[in-house]
Simulated scan of single mutants.
Amino acid sequence: MPANQLGKLIVITGPSGVGKGTLVNFLLQRHPQLKLSISATTRQPRPGEVEGVNYFFLNKKDFETAILNQELLEWAEYAGNYYGTPKAGVIEEIKQGNYIILEIELAGARSVADLFPEALRIFILPPSIEELEQRIRNRGTNTEESIANRLEIAQKEIAARDEFDLQIVNDDLEQAIALLEAAIFPSS
């Protein structure tokens, strides 16, 4: 891609536990020209997550300061925690001609659509609500209350799937990745 050509913003969203992270990780391994925008969050790190690699882990006060200073491309409160995308890095990467993936929640995806209507917006769906519940339980990191809350939120998110350019059911990993690749790199 020519250096003077603008990059592409790819927004990937879907319910918690649907496998967004797994799909994005495979895309990044197979396509080094893709870059992942690192989100900020106030939630506690999960085992193995690294500051500045998986997320920027902020306390609530610092996150709220970033909101007030308009340093975030989008932000949302989800399941009692803040999540958001630092703005400056994403805009600079796009200007440099890079393809940037935002793996974000529904509210954030809606905010990005307002600022970047040309972004490719992809919604990842579970094969079923029952399968989604099993995936969330298999993480082993959520309380019963948290699982119930995430499933309730998931129902509302799934109802918004038609707002997106593409919907992919994450039932078969290789098929889901192939569909993502075809959408991101349509001329390949």
Results as ranks from 00 to 15, higher is better:
E51F: 14
S111T: 12
G17H: 00
G52R: 11
R150H: 14
R139A: 01
I101Q: 02
P47N: 11
K35I: 06
P15I: 00
L115P: 02
T42P: 05
N81S: 14
L151S: 12
I104N: 04
I153T: 03
L34E: 11
K87G: 05
Q70R: 09
V53S: 14
E105I: 02
S111W: 07
R137F: 03
N54T: 11
N54Y: 08
P86M: 05
I91E: 15
L179F: 12
L58E: 11
G19Q: 00
E105Y: 04
T42I: 02
N81V: 03
K8E: 09
P32F: 14
N170W: 01
F63K: 02
A182V: 08
Q5D: 12
L72V: 06
E181A: 13
I10C: 09
N59H: 15
A76Y: 05
T143R: 09
I67K: 07
L36F: 06
Q44Y: 12
G17Q: 00
N138F: 07
Q96C: 12
Q134L: 08
P45R: 04
Q96D: 15
R139H: 05
P47L: 09
A119F: 05
F57I: 10
P2I: 06
G84W: 05
I147N: 06
P117M: 05
A154C: 10
E118V: 06
A178C: 08
P2S: 13
A88R: 13
N54A: 12
I38G: 08
W75P: 03
E74V: 04
A183Q: 12
Q44D: 12
L58M: 14
L125Y: 01
W75G: 05
E64S: 10
D62E: 15
I147G: 05
D172L: 09
Y78R: 11
E64D: 14
G17K: 00
S187T: 15
K95G: 06
E174P: 04
F56V: 14
A88K: 15
L173E: 02
P117W: 10
T41V: 09
L23P: 00
I10F: 09
V18W: 00
L125G: 00
Q167C: 15
I184P: 02
D114Q: 15
R150Y: 10
E152M: 14
E163G: 02
A154P: 08
L28H: 07
P2A: 11
Q96Y: 13
V112Q: 02
P186M: 11
G80E: 06
Q175L: 08
L28G: 05
S111A: 15
L132C: 03
F26L: 10
T22D: 00
N98C: 09
K61C: 10
L72A: 09
V112R: 01
I94Y: 10
